[in-house]
Computed example of a mutant assay.
Amino acid sequence: MRNARTWPQRTQVWLCISMMLLLASTAQAQPTGGTYTGTLECGPLITNPQQGPWSQPVQLTISGQSVAWERLDSRLSESGSGMLRDGRVSFNLEGRWNPGQRSTGQWRNVVMLEWKDSALSGPATIFSANGDQRLRDCSVRVAMAGGTKSVAVPPPVSASPAAAERARREQEANREKDALRERAIRENDERIARQREAQRREDEQAQRQAQERRDAQRRSQEAWEQQQQAVERQREAERKAKEEQERQRQVAAKQQQEREAQERAAAKTLQEANAKGAATRQAARIRALGLPADFTSSMLYVSYGAAWTELMPCAQWLGLLLENQKISEVRAISVRGRPGVSIKRPGQPAIGFVFRTESKEAYVWALVTDDRASLLETPGEHMHVAQLLALYTDPTRMP
């Protein structure tokens, strides 16, 4: 009978045991304080998938409800803290490369962790410093020994109806809390999934727009290159056309020069032939001048400053003078017994040429102007007289 207890005593014992179990279960529903190491695993860089995935260690330090985050990498700094509520903690972290590193810049890391299966785990997303560009999708897991999920303790069978009702209500409240927590987690996961899907669509749209811009730039570049090629072809065609025109002009000029040379040669030949026949055609008039025969039968020589050269036979020179329509009178003169010829042009005083003869050769000796004879002494005077002798035989050259 020593172990026998009354109904109220047994009820109190079971209530105490139930409360202790509930308190123990509630205490173990949160991770215990301490420092834990886990892993941050990130996928490829969204803006450049060639930069592949990577993983790094992270450290969580729990003190009461406060949880401190630190990424364990000496090259960079990324740390922050959050409050643990209902088994969940979130971080809005700012990271930067440490001075002296090859890489520079800053970023944001948004982390949401949940206490589940003796670990804090959940998604993380790395953004640009201003939060406009999503860079990498990541996940975090930090295992923590000693943590358990909360469990419900059924009320003792022998408890009083009031205690049983309270236990039932507490169990229902715990179930409702668990359901709310599960729904919140599910809604958060769905929100994150929607955000990621929206971000994926935005990234795809941005990639399409970037590709469209690249295609438009490529088409614009191709059109510009084609235009430049057309311009270059036009320039080449114009250059070839100008070269052909210049070639034809040169050919035409050369042909014209050849024709003119031929015409000059023919005219010269004709002139020479005509000049050679002047002595025969004007033989009677030459005899009528009364010039000495040794002069009319001589070869006329002139000097152009360097040496004496043949001009033409004297009879031929006289015949050309007589046939020149621009000469009004040709008559014979004599100075100091030397034969000469006086030439008169309309409106101009007569000019006379006096010759000396030797061995069938005639040379200009003096020039008669204003009835005065001037001996030729200098090379310049001989050259001037030589030009006059030739000029009077060619009407086309006379003014």
Score class of each variant (00 low, 15 high):
Arg219Asp: 14
Met144Asn: 05
Gln248Thr: 09
Pro156Asp: 07
Gln228Thr: 08
Ala143Asp: 09
Ala164Met: 05
Gln229Arg: 12
Trp7Leu: 08
Arg5Trp: 14
Glu260Gly: 12
Val111His: 01
Ser90Cys: 11
Ser63Glu: 13
Asp371His: 11
Arg102Met: 08
Pro31Asp: 08
Thr35Arg: 04
Gly64Leu: 05
Ala241Gly: 09
Ala27Leu: 11
Thr309Arg: 11
Ala293Gln: 15
Glu94Ala: 10
Val153Pro: 01
Arg219Tyr: 10
Ile192Thr: 09
Ala143Asn: 01
Glu176Gly: 06
Gly131Cys: 13
Arg336Phe: 13
Gly277Asn: 14
Ala350Val: 07
Asp371Gln: 07
Gly34Leu: 06
Trp308Glu: 15
Pro349Tyr: 14
Ile351Thr: 05
Ala273Ile: 12
Val385Lys: 01
Ser74Leu: 03
Leu120Phe: 03
Ser103Ile: 00
Gln348Ile: 15
Ser121Met: 07
Gln271Arg: 11
Val251Asn: 04
Thr269Asn: 14
Gly95Asn: 00
Pro154Thr: 13
Tyr301Arg: 07
Asp371Pro: 08
Trp7Gln: 15
Arg75Ser: 08
Ala152Arg: 00
Gly337Cys: 02
Val330Met: 12
Ala332Glu: 04
Phe353Asp: 01
Ala29Lys: 01
Arg108Tyr: 00
Gln51Gly: 03
Gly319Arg: 02
Trp54Leu: 15
Ala4Ser: 13
